[in-house]
Design a protein around this nucleic acid. Structure first.
Length: 322
DNA sequence: AATCCGGGGCA
DNA sequence: TGCCCAGGATT
């Protein structure tokens, strides 16, 4: 994409004007507090805005500052993170908070290159925080922006070309707004499958206008059946802690898995994880042959439950929140 | 560059 | 049921 300087200026002005009119009022856009922006960016990694909206304010009430986050137990974070997925994000968030408090007196680095050294912060997130909180003129290229840039540039791009184009069009006086404008465009107009080109403010600069898409081959999804038992007495329920060394959901708590006996199902539900669609059956049992621990139901909110366990307990009416 | 990590909502 | 969706770490 070779634009003249007046064209670049026109592009920036047009996009920022559109963003000013059309941006969604998201809670992390309220101010430039690096802590609030950081938390939002980590939550938003591979996670839909709608899912984050439910959790964001509650998380900040529980951990209102970097210091409070750093002094919390990691299990508290995981419990609060339950259902959001990619639990390594919560562990990295905690680790980074401790590093910031211990080594930097709780002061955030103000450049993308320094931010990227913290756990859980890659190139995109570093640029997003640096531009939004500290106005550093660096392009933030996430999946949305990459798609938008590819469409604008047209055919025959490499990663290098994307970066060059992003550098060229970035508004250096308002990098945070500009980056968010590009992301907002990707999230609401320049959609992956059905781009709304007639509604696009910068269609005049776009060389493809949604054509020539190369859709990725999606991995086929597996199906699995699984059965969990709910075993209760008075104010307690049996839960199982996953192996802390397991690759999947290490150290998190779930319901005991049992063999499926036909006709015993209390209820069933569906649960999708990565490329597997689970059909989950839940049975009520009076006792359990295997292991597990009795957990007070009043303390369930404090425990790092897997998203599925939380979902089952909610459907069963044993917990209410989220 | 490929692979692993999770989850929910909607048509 | 199929499809879509604001990445980072590891190898």
């Amino acid at each position: 994409m070779q634009l003249t300087q007046p064209e670049v200026n026109d592009f920036r002005r047009t996009l920022l004007a559109w963003y000013g009119e059309n941006q969604r009022p998201l809670p992390w856009r309220r101010d430039r507090d690096p802590y609030r922006i950081w938390v939002s960016e980590i939550m938003l990694q591979q996670t839909r805005v709608a899912a984050v909206l439910y959790r964001y304010e509650r998380f900040l009430e529980r951990f209102p500052s970097l210091e409070r986050l750093a002094s919390a137990r990691v299990n508290s974070l995981l419990a609060e993170w339950s259902g959001l997925g990619y639990y390594r994000r919560a562990r990295h968030l905690h680790g980074a908070a401790r590093i910031l408090v211990r080594e930097r007196q709780g002061v955030f680095p103000q450049t993308a290159s320094e931010l990227a050294r913290l756990p859980g912060i890659g190139a995109y997130t570093a640029a997003a925080i640096a531009s939004m909180a500290f106005a550093e003129p660096v392009p933030a290229i996430d999946g949305n922006v990459e798609r938008v840039l590819r469409r604008i540039i047209g055919k025959r791009q490499r990663r290098r070309d994307l970066r060059d184009a992003a550098e060229q069009i970035l508004d250096r006086s308002r990098p945070g707004d500009f980056n968010q404008a590009l992301m907002e465009l990707g999230a609401t107009v320049c959609l992956p499958s059905r781009p709304r080109c007639p509604a696009c403010p910068i269609r005049g600069f776009c060389s493809t206008r949604g054509c020539g898409e190369l859709r990725q081959l999606k991995p086929r999804r597996r199906k699995r059946n699984i059965t969990y038992a709910i075993v209760q007495r008075q104010h307690e329920i049996i839960l199982v802690k996953r192996d802390p060394g397991s690759r999947l959901l290490p150290g998190m708590w779930e319901l005991p898995e049992v063999d499926n006996e036909k006709g015993k199902t209390w209820f069933s539900l569906r649960h999708s994880i990565t490329t597997t669609d689970f059909t989950v059956y839940v049975v009520r049992l009076a006792g359990l042959p295997g292991g597990g621990r009795w957990i007070k139901m009043s303390s369930l909110d404090m425990l790092p439950l897997t998203g599925l366990a939380r979902k089952i307990l909610r459907v069963a009416g044993i917990i209410q929140s989220l």
